[in-house]
């Protein structure tokens, strides 16, 4: 193994991280090529236990690829991934050795992913979607798997959909089931790849509510998202990525409300709508009381977090 010494300059333990904890996820000097296309150009990221990290950036910036490299849905070209103490180096030649495959399996058990398109299994009922992998992959006894699944189904508020087929659920319900499916694996880390981008705007809130609740309860989460309101409410740190490198990172108050890099400013101005851009001074202006930042333009956009307590509690 080649030692990679890089540390993430932006990393710092989140509010809920136990004192003295080491990062639970490390992305070490990661590079990814798709043929000649250099998508990730040396990304180093550290995520501490019980914190939520949001990755923001334009489409094509490499944020989804980064997430997919962490659980090896994409094989990184150079660098290493470490999850919960298990370090796996990139295997650029795709030797696919038994050892490498077993390591990837272990990584995936630790880091579960929620997809933009939900990817529920349409031929299995909701409950069977949840227990399939715990039983067949982790060897959990059936009764125990069902109990765990029911617990998380209740958590996402869909206990009554237990015996439905995914085809009969709304998009928001599907995504909540997908979150419950990931939780039923009891992973160390939850990864979300644009979990609300495929949803009808009216259904975004129910998914973000579940995610925000998880974040406030201290789940370790890495979230690729365009929902700035969510990033601002739930993230301990926000990373802005452009052309395969991190341009700016820090707490959301800093990156989203007061970005220092002109590229971040431009992205946020475009994402949040021109209405929020100040002339001169700080590029972004969001009133302190406002709990919703509109995802794409118009101030009358209905997409907002539907939270009666304004995000204080949980």
């Amino acid at each position: 193994m080649t030692p990679i010494e890089d540390r993430d300059p932006y990393a710092r333990p989140g509010a809920l991280t136990p004192a003295g904890a080491e990062p639970i996820v490390r992305v070490l000097a990661l590079e990814k090529f798709f043929a000649a296309n250099h998508v990730l150009r040396g990304v180093t990221l550290e995520v501490y236990p019980r914190e939520t990290v949001c990755l923001i950036g334009k489409s094509g910036s490499g944020k989804s690829t980064l997430l997919r490299c962490i659980n090896f849905l994409e094989e990184p070209t150079v660098g290493a991934i470490e999850v919960d103490g298990l370090r796996v180096d990139a295997d650029p030649l795709h030797s696919r050795s038994r050892h490498h495959r077993e390591q990837i399996r272990q990584i995936r058990l630790r880091a579960q992913m929620v997809f933009q398109e939900f990817n529920l299994f349409p031929h299995l009922k909701v409950i069977d979607n949840l227990i399939e992998a715990p039983i067949r992959v982790k060897g959990v006894p059936r009764a125990e798997a069902i109990a765990t699944a029911e617990k998380y189904l209740d958590k996402v508020g869909l206990s009554e959909k237990r015996n439905e087929y995914p085809g009969r659920l709304s998009g928001g319900q599907k995504q909540r089931v997908a979150i419950a499916r990931a939780l039923t694996m009891e992973p160390k880390v939850l990864m979300f790849d644009e979990p609300t981008s495929a949803l009808d705007p009216t259904l975004v809130g129910e998914v973000l509510n579940v995610m925000e609740e998880l974040a406030h309860e201290g789940a370790t989460m890495i979230v690729v998202t365009h929902e700035m309101a969510f990033a601002r409410e739930a993230a301990d740190r926000v990373y802005y990525i452009e052309d395969g490198v991190f341009v700016e990172a820090g707490p959301p108050e800093q990156v989203i409300l007061n970005p220092s890099d002109p590229r971040t400013r431009e992205f946020l101005a475009r994402t949040l709508g021109e209405a929020h851009v100040h002339e001169g001074g700080a590029a972004i202006h969001v009133p302190e009381e406002s709990t919703h930042i509109h995802a794409e333009g118009g101030p009358a956009h209905p997409r907002e977090l539907d939270r009666p307590d304004g995000g204080a509690g949980h």
Binding site: R108, L109, Q112, N119, F121, E132, A133, V137, M185
Partner: peptide, 13 residues
């Protein structure tokens, strides 16, 4: 393809 990815992400052989 998403079905294969979901299964892979769940660590299914």
């Amino acid at each position: 393809r998403g079905q294969l990815e979901a299964a892979a992400a769940l660590a299914m052989p």
